[in-house]
Simulated assay, not measured.
Amino acid sequence: MIRLPPDRLATHQWIVGTALSAPNVMLVAQTALVAALAVRPLPWAARGLGALGGMMAAGYLMEAGFPEAIRQPDREKTPILLGGFALALAMGLLGSRAARSRGSIA
């Protein structure tokens, strides 16, 4: 686990994220893409969400605490990590499907 001084913690969260959360930059991009899709079906926004989902799912797998949460389940951390990974994976797969279907997001 990385120990950061309080004055660097906010910057670290924006750029790198935490063990339980993607970087804020990715979360802002996700919010913007979801808002764009709420207005109308935009193939580029669906593909963008797919790319973000893939990156987020990969991030969970690279996180040091993920394998530990599988090997030694914790009542608090394991459901959060598994739920976040499953949702990121679903977002990646759905966005990938939209990209393959030539722009249709249905």
Rank of each mutant, 00 (worst) to 15 (best):
M55W: 12
A29L: 13
R47S: 15
G48W: 05
E76F: 10
R47N: 10
G95D: 01
V16P: 06
G83F: 09
G65Y: 11
A35E: 10
L4F: 03
F85Y: 14
V34L: 12
G83R: 08
A86M: 13
A58V: 09
T11Y: 13
R75I: 10
P23G: 02
A57F: 03
V39L: 13
R40T: 13
L81D: 05
L87E: 09
M1N: 06
A57N: 00
A98N: 04
A64R: 15
R3A: 11
L4P: 11
A46Y: 04
P41D: 14
A32W: 02
A22H: 05
A46T: 03
R75V: 12
A57L: 09
G92W: 09
A45L: 00
L42D: 15
W14H: 13
L61K: 09
L93H: 02
G83Y: 08
I105M: 00
I70T: 05
M62T: 11
G65I: 14
M55T: 02
T18H: 01
L94N: 05
S21N: 08
L61N: 05
I80V: 15
W44L: 13
P43C: 01
A57Q: 01
A86R: 03
A99N: 07
T78E: 06
L94W: 01
G92T: 07
R100W: 11
L33A: 12
G59E: 05
G50P: 11
M91A: 11
R47L: 13
G95A: 08
L9D: 12
L61M: 11
R40C: 07
R75Q: 06
M56T: 15
M55P: 00
A32V: 13
L37I: 08
E68M: 13
S21R: 14
A51G: 12
M55C: 09
A57G: 02
V39P: 00
A86V: 12
R97T: 06
L52S: 11
W44D: 15
E68D: 10
L42M: 14
A46C: 13
L49F: 07
A88R: 03
K77M: 13
Y60R: 06
T31Q: 14
G17V: 01
G48V: 08
M1K: 03
R71Q: 11
A69G: 04
G103V: 03
L81C: 03
L33R: 04
A46N: 07
L94D: 06
N24S: 08
T31F: 14
L52Q: 11
D7C: 03
A38G: 14
G103Y: 06
Q30I: 07
A69E: 07
L52Y: 02
V16C: 07
L93P: 04
A51E: 12
F85T: 00
V16H: 14
F66R: 01
I70H: 00
L37N: 01
P5N: 12
G17W: 10
G84W: 03
E76N: 08
Q13L: 13
L87P: 00
G54D: 10
H12K: 04
L89G: 05
G54L: 04
L37Q: 12
P43R: 02
T11Q: 15
Q72V: 08
L42E: 14
A106M: 10
R97M: 09
A90G: 08
L33K: 02
A64G: 10
L93M: 13
T18S: 15
R40W: 01
L94Q: 09
A29P: 07
R75C: 00
N24W: 12
I15W: 15
